[in-house]
């Protein structure tokens, strides 16, 4: 489990989980669950596009994630945000089915991208993942207070000179970055589980926002480690453990909250 071959996986998983915990905290308090679920799924066809065009997979994923951000933002201007999110998601996935049908059918590849796979992280892939992760984390840390303030009250934020619309777009971009890098490991369908599960527990365990943020990062990393270890031992898909552990974290958080009050 700790062979040099697996070492890269551990490093990458730690990086993406820490980022997911950081960004996920704001996903939970801003109520952005649907967008957090839709963005990685919209990015997923990018892998198929990359395979068809013969470009780097991460580049393809980032490109489609950007389309997802543009779509959600564009459709939101004339309609309900959740309808915009849903339609962007299905549009890009629809394109994805087309790309998949035209490329060499590789069911194993599709399955891995959707549900995650531990193995197969090369040393060369660590650098872009770490760079994108750092960008997402840095942006979150810089926008820490505006993100929190506009989550509490958009009017309040506006009064302080923070345009809620811009913060929304900035946060979509941050989510897209954080989720795209986690996608190859955890899988497009379950990235957001890593984001909202630990973060929802952290929010229920403490009332102090910055402590909650730290807890969210910690729990997310532990979740990812546990999921990898269990997946390695059982040979079952990592997504199963991420989804289950995320729900478990939420349940624990709710129970603690319930016991307090």
């Amino acid at each position: 489990m700790f062979s040099s071959f697996m070492l890269n996986s551990w490093i990458v998983a730690t990086i993406v989980a820490a980022t997911a915990g950081l960004v996920g905290f704001f996903v939970v308090i801003r109520g952005a669950s649907f967008a957090a679920h839709a963005l990685p799924l919209s990015a997923f066809p990018g892998a198929a596009a990359a395979a068809l065009l013969g470009v780097n997979e991460i580049a393809g994923l980032v490109g489609f994630a950007a389309l997802g951000v543009l779509g959600i933002n564009g459709f939101s201007r004339r309609g309900r945000p959740e309808v915009a999110t849903a339609l962007t998601l299905v549009l890009l996935l629809g394109v994805g089915t087309l790309l998949l049908s035209q490329s060499r059918d590789d069911a194993q590849l599709v399955y891995g991208l959707l549900f995650g796979q531990v193995l197969g992280v090369s040393r060369a892939e660590i650098v872009p993942i770490a760079a994108l992760s750092a960008a997402a984390s840095l942006a979150t840390l810089m926008l820490l207070r505006p993100l929190l303030l506009s989550a509490v009250s958009p009017e309040l934020a506006q009064a302080r000179g923070v345009a809620p619309g811009r913060i929304d777009i900035a946060f979509l971009v941050i989510m897209a970055l954080a989720e795209t890098i986690a996608l190859p490991v955890v899988g497009a369908l379950l990235v957001f589980s890593l984001m909202v599960g630990p973060a929802s527990a952290a929010r229920n365990l403490t009332d102090r926002p910055w402590l909650g943020l730290a807890l969210s990062v910690g729990l997310s990393v532990v979740t990812a480690w546990l999921a990898i270890a269990l997946a390695y031992q059982t040979n079952w898909p990592i997504g199963f453990f991420v989804g289950g552990l995320g729900a478990l974290a939420y349940a624990v958080g709710r129970a603690v909250r319930g016991a307090k009050s």
Binding site: S33, F34, H37, L190, P237, F240, F241, A247
Partner: peptide, 13 residues
């Protein structure tokens, strides 16, 4: 989202 995550985990399995 939490229910969705748990359910998709089962799908994966």
């Amino acid at each position: 989202g939490i229910v969705l995550g748990a359910g998709l985990g089962l799908t994966a399995l």
